[in-house]
Design a protein around this nucleic acid. Structure first.
Lengths: 167, 167
DNA sequence: ACGGAATACTTGCACTTCCTAGTTTGTGCA
DNA sequence: TGCACAAACTAGGAAGTGCAAGTATTCCGT
């Protein structure tokens, strides 16, 4: 029994025909996200990482300097600044990042990845690639279709960041 | 600048070609879920509901008796039993559901939707249909494609509940 | 140059989620 | 029948998220 198919049936019985398929699609995205997140967190847990913290480490590892202002990280990761503070607190306690002063702006603090952080994110990424991303549960054409459809959706939702570079 | 496209580029530069597209698809699903959830919660907030609580009310409103054991609700909604307890606590305080004893099994408690609960979920559903589900940001063919691809994915992930009916 | 506005970050609070452990009640085997 | 085991729910705690407010610093118009 598919709970979502059942919900769609109920929607149709109530006469909400215009909304039934959209409701099913939106709800399916919710459930799919839960399933994928659970798989990812299972892989990351032994490394002491959550997906949010992994994303932060990965972002830092891809910058030229290995460091970013907190606000930049918040914008790139599309999460609330307080969530970044929280993640950095824990990553710093684990020795994977350091807070550093910004050379020019006294307000901003830089988050900088440490050598241990680089090692951790490298290892975690290899495992995620092997156990989730290479075979996510979608065929190659499905992956392409998802990337196209969801990419356009995100674009229309204003999910893209303005281009700005600054240490 | 699309943060996900940029991540894919980094993946490719590192030589993780097998995983790059899957990583992009999985991450896109994460972001899409966040965007949709934010829209839904914006609609529900004036009603004092979260999506989790709305889903519980909707589930109850579709049962014959308007009541379900907590464990059933937990299984149907695919959430942890303690999360159901939490939702029911708040819905009960708001007068939208009631806890009732199970007639046959002393261990289980029934959650029962109240007339106010029915009114609230009806109104909230109409608004969600109008503001989100009818025009979710995907075309009709895209919605169909998502339902098909994600439905199969969920099926293979074991996301379907065994058929059992019991008050 | 200087004072109000804006920016960057942190703290406290509320909420949600899940985990572990506990209590109560039912089930089934000896 | 009786006793171990399982099931249903709740309580307490940790972690993540977002909002509102607070502090420190910078920006900018006059």
């Amino acid at each position: 029994m598919d709970p979502i198919a059942e919900a769609r049936r109920h929607w149709q019985e109530r006469g909400w025909l215009e909304a039934a398929e959209g409701m099913a699609a939106v709800t399916s995205i919710m459930r799919t996200q839960q399933i994928l997140l659970a798989r990812i967190e299972t892989v990351l847990k032994p490394h002491g990482l959550t997906f949010a913290r992994f994303e932060l480490l990965a972002l830092l590892s891809f910058t030229r300097e290995g460091a970013l202002p907190m606000a930049k990280a918040s914008a790139r990761l599309q999460v609330h600044p307080t969530s970044v503070t929280n993640s950095v607190d824990r990553l710093e306690r684990a020795g994977l990042v350091m807070r550093a002063a910004h050379p020019a702006d006294g307000r901003t603090k830089l988050v900088e990845i440490t050598p241990q952080g680089r090692a951790a994110v490298e290892q975690a990424t290899l495992e995620l690639n092997a156990q989730v991303f290479t075979s996510p549960g979608f065929s190659a054409p499905e992956v392409d279709g998802l990337n196209q459809v969801l990419g356009r959706f995100r674009h229309e939702a204003g999910d893209f960041v303005e281009t700005r570079f600054a240490i």
